[in-house]
């Protein structure tokens, strides 16, 4: 299978599967380690609460599998947050793929941030063909601060990292599967990432 979506019992995996279908790609939902290792592209989805999501990954032993993957991996929303060192939500240790700690939005803002906001300072081929200040759909209470691995920024009260990348690992805070045509373009870009970008 070319594309797998890691199925670890969280959130709206179907909407990612359907978005890929609209791009003409059939993806497999799986938690089988060998299938995940053999896939050309891996998506780590996630809508939910960090500590229980991380527990689910650990139950399937996937917390050991994911960090060793060599193919392009895309974490979406909570999936991206779990790829960081740590998140304040449920005091949860992450997969330590991105060297940053996820924090809660302050109460001076409406929390969660919910709706369409812009992404800018776009880096890497993940954003090929995406114009600056394109709108993406976001819904989250926790955020990754700007760090050296930031490849897109969004401002909600202050700028934060709405996408991260290190080696073959990519993470987006927004939901490309629910962000109109631009979101679909980002998913398409992920599927077409050149191999040169994929080496650890």
């Amino acid at each position: 299978m070319d594309v797998v979506i890691i199925d670890y019992g969280v959130g709206n995996v179907k909407s990612i599967e359907f978005a890929l279908n609209r791009l003409g790609v059939q993806a497999l939902l799986t938690q089988d380690a060998d299938t995940i290792k053999a896939a050309k592209r891996v998506i780590l989805p996630g809508v939910g609460e960090a500590s229980s999501a991380m527990k689910n990954l650990e139950t399937c032993e996937l917390h050991r599998v994911i960090p060793n993957l060599k193919q392009p991996v895309l974490g979406i929303c909570l999936g991206m947050q779990l790829m960081c060192n740590y998140t304040d939500e449920g005091q949860t240790k992450g997969l330590k793929l991105f060297n940053t700690d996820v924090k809660q939005f302050p109460n001076s803002l409406k929390v969660p941030q919910m709706g369409w906001n812009t992404i800018n300072n776009l880096k890497t081929n993940l954003f090929k063909g995406i114009k600056p200040n394109e709108y993406m759909y976001l819904v989250h209470s926790y955020y990754a601060p700007i760090c050296s691995e930031t490849i897109a920024q969004t401002t909600y009260g202050f700028p934060y990292a709405s996408a991260l990348q290190k080696n073959n690992f990519y993470g987006v805070q927004f939901h490309p599967e629910r962000s109109g045509h631009a979101g679909e373009q980002i998913l398409k870009n992920f599927l077409e990432l050149p191999e040169a970008n994929c080496k650890p």
Binding site: G11, N12, V47, G48, M114, H140, S141
Partner: peptide
């Protein structure tokens, strides 16, 4: 529900 699925949904 918030604990299981996250408050955002």
């Amino acid at each position: 529900l918030a604990k299981k699925f996250g408050k955002q949904c």
